[in-house]
Amino acid sequence: MSGTINIDGQNIPFEEGQTIIEAATAAGVYIPHLCHQPGYTPHGSCKVCTVNVNGRNCSACTFPAVEGQTIVNNSAELEQDRRRMTQMLFVEGNHFCPSCEKTGNCQLQGVAYHLNMLDNHFPHFFANREMDASHPDILIDHNRCIFCNLCVRASREKDGKNVFGISGRGINKRLIINSDSGQLKDSDIDVNDCAAHICPTGAILIKRTGYQVPIGKRIYDHHDISEVALMEEREHGK
């Protein structure tokens, strides 16, 4: 079964079982997102992909495409809300883009550029978060974790392990490691695992690779995240 949905006046075909974001991506329509990644179980937590479906706000990454939906993706109101939620992620953790080795390749930063985010707007939480440099090849900087759950899903769904988990409640959420010591070095993660490479921010980094591509020549230094995401994710859908 298939059908048509309408996004911002454009008719877009979908196939049974597709979510709104999957149908949109296949048709070349970008919906900003952070916790969504094609091929992974949808999570729906970052809410950056919020669209308005028949008058109701929904997460495009989890909400199924259904015949006859009228969807607003680009509106001043949604853009403003998405910018504010991205700013929330910036003030919740400790993000210092100029000194972060992920800068230019960071999806959080890429989405912020796309949404024309010029400041953090909200007061900072100055959360006291730690680093885990115990593993010989992989570094975790908890300051940059946005709880998108991608590493958790990657480890479980792609790597067949359970290296990561999200613990805590409310603003006290934290990423935890499945090992006796709680440190990454004692987990069964491998540097070639999907979970080691999936992080959209600079929270999980591969050691000794940070500056192989110089700043200024990185992905989002030259391309808007909408172009990059559409190109990569449509490729995945094929």
Binding site: S45, C46, K47, M85, M88, E92, R169, I171, K173
Partner: peptide, 9 residues
């Protein structure tokens, strides 16, 4: 619960 950004933060 802290699951989604708008409520957690």
């Amino acid at each position: 619960c802290g699951f989604c950004t708008p409520c957690r933060v």
